[in-house]
């Protein structure tokens, strides 16, 4: 086989082989955005069914997760914002050190805001850590879509934080 034909076969075959191998690789080993890792999202009909906040989640999800984290960490309750308010509370407003969730308003320090903006770390006792070096996976699991106070529990498991709607927790335990 001449060198040109060999090179052509090599490149074409390499592209195809790489594509096919990628499909198996991604789906079997490293599931990520290309295959949709989100466990649950704001549904198209507007129902807030289940949210997943993680380092690979959408801004809406991260905003809600971060807001909930702060509230839960402070021992407060969480108000689930309406679909409209979620749109208004974009993550860059967090960057302006102000959080508004429904009728709740809180001024954050820059450090707190940074933690919420993806640098959150827990020390295992439910406190916000002070490191900006590692991000924690946090998950909000709720079955409610009603604006208003919502009682939630903060759980830790394998280094991740799970914020679970108490009503849902009760259902799960039944």
């Amino acid at each position: 086989m001449r060198s040109s034909a060999r090179l052509l076969a090599l490149i074409t075959g390499g592209f195809i082989l790489g594509s096919v191998a990628n499909l198996f690789w991604e789906t079997r080993v490293v599931p990520d955005v290309a295959h949709g890792e989100r466990i649950a999202v704001l549904r198209d009909d507007g129902r807030l069914v289940t949210l997943t906040g993680s380092t690979r989640s959408t801004p809406k999800e991260r905003f809600l997760a971060a807001t909930a984290l702060l509230e839960i960490a402070r021992g407060g309750t969480l108000r689930v914002p309406s679909e409209d308010s979620v749109d208004r509370y974009t993550v860059t407003r967090l960057a302006r050190m102000t959080v508004e969730v429904a009728d709740y308003r809180s001024e954050l320090t820059e450090t707190e805001a940074l933690h919420l903006l993806g640098f959150v770390r827990f020390d295992g006792r439910g406190q916000l850590g002070d490191s900006t070096s590692s991000a924690v996976e946090f998950y909000i699991i709720s079955s409610s879509n009603e604006p208003g106070p919502l009682s939630m529990s903060l759980l830790f498991h394998n280094g991740a934080a799970f914020i679970v709607d108490d009503d849902l927790m009760g259902e799960l335990r039944r």
């Binding site: 060999r6 090179l7 490149i11 390499g14 790489g18 191998a21 690789w25």
Partner: peptide, 25 residues
Amino acid sequence: AYWGFWGFFWYIIPPLLIATIVIGN
């Protein structure tokens, strides 16, 4: 090779690149 979410990309491209530099036109 593994953690960068590159899949097989960097398994495939370097040999192709070297071959192209050596015998490409």
